[in-house]
């Protein structure tokens, strides 16, 4: 132990704020004589994106492996009342995913398809614009729209702002409804908003999002849309992809192949 008590207290108390400010440029922070550091195995990208191939995602057995994997990984409760549901990923009818195409003629079975929906991690997210505490924000490094459940005040402005219904609010304590609560990921408390985070906690450990890993049909492709050599970029070059409500200028980073 090389430091005396005084030094520790100084580091811990007001000194911490100064240390945080001083290390902001480096992006690292001094804490109690130690220092934070980026993860070694973290998967990195300039702009994370997902391509969902709706053709592959049509198993007759009504497969929901991706949704179950996601909800299991993140301690998402299973609330029976659909009005109070929490969902990070869910399937909905094509015309709900793309309401503007409701009356358009569509080829083949497209209209009958169930479409996997999740947070679009918009490049220009309205939810981030409206949040009064920056409890939700867009990570500059990789474009993920993040959530800070310590900070959220539960005003639900982001829920009103999201054009995709991707955000859920905890109308009551979610814990009694969590089927398999585990300690690897926190639960949420009542009164905060939650949503998909592109599994940023798994990316930090060098793993792909839970839904991508769980899909038996390999219908979900995850990668860096800013890297022309990524699988995502290649798919988007080769095939015509839809985004939800592109006319709103939110620039969703989830793409759908039909």
């Amino acid at each position: 132990m090389s430091m005396d008590r005084k030094t520790f207290l100084k580091l811990g108390g007001c000194g911490l704020a100064a240390a945080v400010a001083g290390n902001k440029l480096a992006g690292l922070v001094q804490i109690a004589g130690g220092q934070s550091a980026p993860g070694e195995k973290t998967l990195r990208a300039s702009r994370w994106a997902m391509v969902i191939d709706t053709r592959k995602c049509q198993r007759a057995d009504g497969c929901d492996a991706c949704i179950r994997a996601c909800h299991e990984a993140h301690n998402v409760p299973s609330i029976p009342d659909p009005r109070r549901e929490i969902k990070w990923a869910w399937k909905d009818r094509f015309e709900h995913a793309f309401p503007e195409l409701e009356t358009s003629p569509l080829p083949g079975d497209v209209r009958e398809r169930q479409v996997l929906l999740l947070c679009n991690h918009c490049a220009n997210p309205p939810c981030v614009r409206v949040c009064p505490t920056r409890a939700t924000w867009k990570r500059q490094s990789d474009g993920i729209v993040m959530m800070d459940w310590h900070r959220c005040i539960g005003c639900r402005y982001c829920v009103a702002a999201c054009p995709y219904g991707s955000r859920s609010f905890n109308w009551f304590d979610p814990r009694p409804y969590i089927r398999n609560m585990h300690a690897e990921y926190p639960t949420r408390t009542r009164g905060v908003v939650e949503k998909c985070t592109f599994c940023e906690e798994r990316l930090a450990e060098g793993r792909l999002p839970a839904c991508v890993e769980a899909c038996p049909e390999k219908a979900l492709v995850f990668g860096d849309a800013a890297d022309p050599n990524s699988e995502v970029s290649q798919l988007l070059r080769e095939q015509f992809a839809l985004r939800r409500k592109p006319e709103l200028g939110t620039e969703p980073q989830v793409f759908y192949l039909l």
């Binding site: 090389s2 430091m3 008590r5 520790f8 207290l9 811990g12 108390g13 911490l16 945080v20 992006g27 690292l28 922070v29 804490i31 109690a32 004589g33 130690g34 220092q35 934070s36 550091a37 980026p38 993860g39 070694e40 973290t42 990570r139 490094s141 993040m146 800070d148 310590h150 940023e200 930090a204």
Partner: peptide, 26 residues
């Protein structure tokens, strides 16, 4: 003993807001 809460708060902000998950201790 005296300041673990401050360390936890700093950890929290580093992980959630900065995405740094490793900590090299004193």
């Amino acid at each position: 003993r005296a300041s673990h809460m401050e360390l936890l708060t700093a950890w929290r902000d580093e992980v959630v807001r900065q995405g740094n998950r490793r900590f090299v201790a004193f």
